[in-house]
């Protein structure tokens, strides 16, 4: 579906991405992770044909973004980090306009707009001016415009940015609902969201894909394991500890301060090599133990931070900024010294 080979994109002399190669299969939902300035948005803009690559090959559905941009654009739905909304149009007017721009046949526009309005739950505001909508609804309209022409490939840049928790859950369901009909690539800073919605993760660092795989692979490859806190009600520690320790992958189990009040409540902290949440739950429930809470203590964020070098990456960015500032000062000083003799003359 998507094939990128040796892609480079320069802004002036600055390399934004490259060399970047990746493939995304039809029907996949792929998450793009990376720190700010890593090149996520540039990559997505190239895929959506908003920008053209400096070099390399980018093909969507077999069509090259440089040789056949219109064919690519007709097959891609793009939601940028700020949805491109005309505030002086109503929701349905805007969606009809977007549909017509993307070559939806005139007689089919009304039906298709109604479908996406229903799909994105915009029915309550369908006649409302976009300028009066809340941020959550705006994001929904943004997604609706991205899928109104039934694109094969949907690109969502930070779709949950700025949403409240309820809207995040709704948006997550909306993105999941695209599975099957569309191939989706999502970028987000909220890394747990990526793991909730995506089949595969692409980690981008300094304009290059530094890691590709599933969340499970990420945990196992980094060998970092997972920290779980399981709260149970009823049994004694002597009964529960052997049950959990016997599970494959579990490295360490200890009783910690209970997360809830009550004499019969017990919280266990479990360290494991891999994701053992399924096994822990099954083992405890089969032994008639009431599991009242299971929380992952170590999230995907720390994994990715580790993968990206964490503090090292921040340090690299700082030194890059310092280098740019130093260069600017040198340039300024050079300009000033060039000027002086002229002024004197």
């Amino acid at each position: 579906m998507i094939e990128i080979q040796e892609l480079y994109k320069y802004y002036g002399d600055r390399r934004a991405i490259g060399p970047l190669s990746l493939e995304v299969a039809k029907g996949e939902i792929v998450g793009l992770l990376g720190l700010n300035g890593a090149g996520k948005t540039t990559t997505l803009r190239v895929l959506a044909c908003d920008l053209l690559p400096t070099s390399g090959t980018v093909k969507v559905g077999g069509f090259d973004v440089v040789a056949a941009p219109d064919e690519v654009r007709a097959r891609v739905g793009y939601l940028p980090d700020r949805p491109p909304l005309y505030e002086d149009m109503s929701v349905v007017e805007y969606l009809a306009f977007a549909a017509r721009l993307r070559r939806v046949a005139a007689p089919a526009v009304t039906k298709r707009v109604s479908e996406v309005v229903e799909m994105t739950e915009l029915g309550d505001v369908r006649g409302q001016m976009i300028g009066t909508l809340s941020h959550g609804y705006r994001q929904r309209v943004g997604i609706a415009q991205a899928i109104v022409h039934r694109p094969e490939f949907v690109v969502l840049d930070e779709p949950i940015s700025g949403l409240d928790p309820v809207q995040i859950v709704e948006m997550r369901e909306l993105v999941r609902s695209l599975r099957g009909d569309h191939t989706v690539i999502v970028s987000s800073h909220i890394l747990s969201e990526i793991s909730e919605t995506c089949d595969r993760l692409l980690v981008i660092e300094d304009g290059r894909i530094s890691w590709v795989g599933t969340e499970k692979q990420l945990f196992s490859e980094l060998g970092q394991g997972m920290q779980l806190a399981v709260t149970v009600r009823g049994p004694s520690a002597d009964r529960v500890l052997p049950l959990v320790r016997a599970l494959a992958g579990v490295q360490e189990v200890e009783v910690v301060a209970a997360s809830e009040p009550g004499d019969d409540v017990l919280t266990l902290q479990i360290s494991s090599k891999s994701d053992v949440r399924d096994q822990v739950c099954r083992a405890l429930v089969s032994a008639d133990v009431a599991v009242i809470e299971l929380v992952r203590r170590q999230g995907l964020e720390s994994m990715v931070l580790k993968l990206l070098g964490g503090d090292e990456a921040a340090g690299r960015r700082k030194s890059r900024k310092k280098r740019d500032a130093d260069q600017a000062m040198v340039d300024e000083a050079a300009q000033a010294s060039d000027k002086q003799p002229t002024e004197g003359a």
């Binding site: 654009r73 007709a74 005309y86 721009l101």
Partner: peptide, 11 residues
């Protein structure tokens, strides 16, 4: 930022 809509449409 609405130019993106036109730029990413088959136009």
């Amino acid at each position: 930022k609405t130019l993106v809509l036109l730029n990413t449409s088959p136009l």
